[in-house]
Write a protein that binds this DNA or RNA. Structure first.
Lengths: 208, 208, 208, 208
DNA sequence: TATGAATGAGCGTTCATTCAT
DNA sequence: CATGAATGAACGCTCATTCAT
């Protein structure tokens, strides 16, 4: 059987090159931040010449945006897993502090922080960020509002919105913590999380 | 009294100048980020010449460090106020989204985020960050371990450590949220916070 | 006849390829100028890969030189037609402002101008330019010195040289005008040209 | 007497620096062309660092435009002198081929050519060029239409427009010639010019 | 013959920092 | 004490040219 024609093959290569660049860029961005990471450094990390990067990306800001969208996508996908597990606290405590290389299923804490800061300045980043945010929140709300018979928590929409908000804060706060205290005591973290999550996921309070 | 004339007076002036520079720098850093804010812009904002800044700071990174330490100090001081209030949720919801100028008692969200990201790279910033962190956490632990008779919650040290950790996550998570959603519904936020804080501050669970 | 198969045929093909490249290059040079037209753009316009161009030309400057020589050749050839016509003013006014593609008998005004500027810097271009210039001028002189019986104007060599010079200036000045005012009033131009040409072609002044 | 305050003094210096840069730029542009002259080369020629140029000009294209406008202004001013002289041919032949430094009253031929070529591509250059063109032409028309009693030539507006056009072509054609043949025989040039100019300035032809 | 990915030098430009005034 | 002109290294990016396929 003859190999695929030039089209697909080069498309495959192009995708591989793009990924090689994104991988190098992510490493550089984590190590130095978006602005301090130079195209030359990224190129060196990706083991290619600076000029070649521009065959695959229009410029540095496109790379930043691609990294950000990739990271946000990762966050979005993890939500699916998270509310499928009954041991949310265990999952969060377990993934805490794992160094996030470019293939990781976890978002890198410094990247998450810089991304969030940039979102207050760059409209494109803000838009991507908002989209990811909305998706994650919607997933939380869905679980919280679904009836208990269906594996949910049977909360009203208003209740669910507030608790989903607290979940977001908690998860994002954990990212900040991850940056500050990578070597935290995991057992303690897990125990503390269990308690707070229990409060957030508890059934609606009955008026007396 | 000749010797007294120059000394103290110039020291006062020097401190005022430093503060003027830090104030301008903070504004610029919030607006553009640490890297994108140029010394020329900071000088212009402080209404002085670029050269003069170097009489009061060794360079840009010293300014960044000074800003960061000042912000961390602010955070530390706020803790005293926070656990003096019985309405923690109200206080948090009320301060949410308030724009933070250089005299503010609140840290600016983008600054907080960039600061946290830089702490993963710069050992000096990491050290300052850790120190502030420890102080805040100690204050939380103190309140949680103090006996109920003394206005505390009578938790064991181990319990208190975990709950203090959750408080940190929640507060830091709120900062992230503040950056993402400055226009949040404050009433909902407050209600949700009350519930989670109640869980965190609740008395120790009794083993059956 | 094996030896005949590759030689001529490929030579023909090579010439066709060269011409295809020159045609594309001319279009790009007119649109953007020698420097701003990139090899990639030329290749794209010629519908081939950038690498292939280097099989037919040693580099960009060789293409520029080839274009220039081709254009000068065109100018040279037009002279033959021009002094065969009795209506020189009409011919000039009629060709004015016609966009010059690569097969045109007219040189493109921006190309002519850039070519002339380059001739002051590049010795090869200067040489080509001088050669073309001399040929055109010789043709004018020949017409002006030929006896009236032979269809000429019977001027002395010295008279003819001066008037040929003025003709050159006028023609070249028209090229500048063409660049500046492509939409000129053709009727006025023609009338004005007739008058000046009449003065240039008039019989020698008789000493009183 | 105290020196002038900081304002004027630095303004004077700024103007001097601007001129120093423009002078160097003009030299580089003449030697290499607009595109091939690099900012580094211009800085070196002006004996300053590359960065300093940007204190006085927003970028390279602003320098190009400044040079062009300065050159066009020179051309415009020369017209005033030219039609004040009774020996136009002598003046033109005399100034021919004089090397044009940055203080010259003559426009540099290669600059004029490149400027004209760029005017077909860059709207700003086109606008400046058109403005200068219109001014020069208006001056010619004025002389040609003014009555003979007032030192003019008493031509009708229509006649004058055509002849002014021919004058423009001739002058611009001379610039092209200057680039091609800097070492021309000045006596011959002058004699030829006299004859053509006589034809252009001759009184209106009388209908028989 | 033809491709187009890859290189790397050089471009225009910015900016932290210095220093003569 | 204060200025702001000046520096020069480094940035993001382009493009003529090469070469493995």
């Amino acid at each position: 059987m003859i190999e695929a024609s030039a089209g697909p093959r080069s498309a495959v290569r192009a995708a591989a090159q793009r990924q090689r660049i994104l991988c190098a860029a992510q490493k550089c961005f984590v190590d130095r931040g978006f602005h301090a990471a130079s195209m030359a450094t990224i190129a060196q990390t990706a083991d290619m010449s600076p000029g070649l990067i521009y065959r695959y990306f229009r410029g540095k800001s496109e790379i930043i945006l691609a990294i950000i969208e990739q990271q946000l996508e990762v966050a979005r996908e993890r939500i699916g897993e998270l509310h499928a597990t009954s041991d949310l606290a265990g999952a969060l405590a377990g993934s805490y502090g794992k160094s996030a290389d470019c293939n990781s299923e976890h978002i890198s804490p410094p990247l998450f922080l810089e991304l969030s800061a940039q979102a207050t300045r760059d409209p494109q980043i803000a838009a991507a960020s908002r989209a990811s945010d909305a998706a994650v929140r919607a997933a939380f709300v869905q679980v919280l509002t679904r009836s208990q018979a269906e594996g949910g928590y049977g909360l009203s929409k208003a209740e669910a919105a507030g608790r989903a908000l607290m979940l977001m804060c908690l998860f994002e706060g954990l990212k900040v913590r991850e940056a500050r205290e990578p070597q935290i005591d995991r057992r303690m973290l897990r125990a503390a999380l269990e308690q707070v999550l229990a409060a957030i996921f508890q059934p609606p309070r009955q008026p007396s």
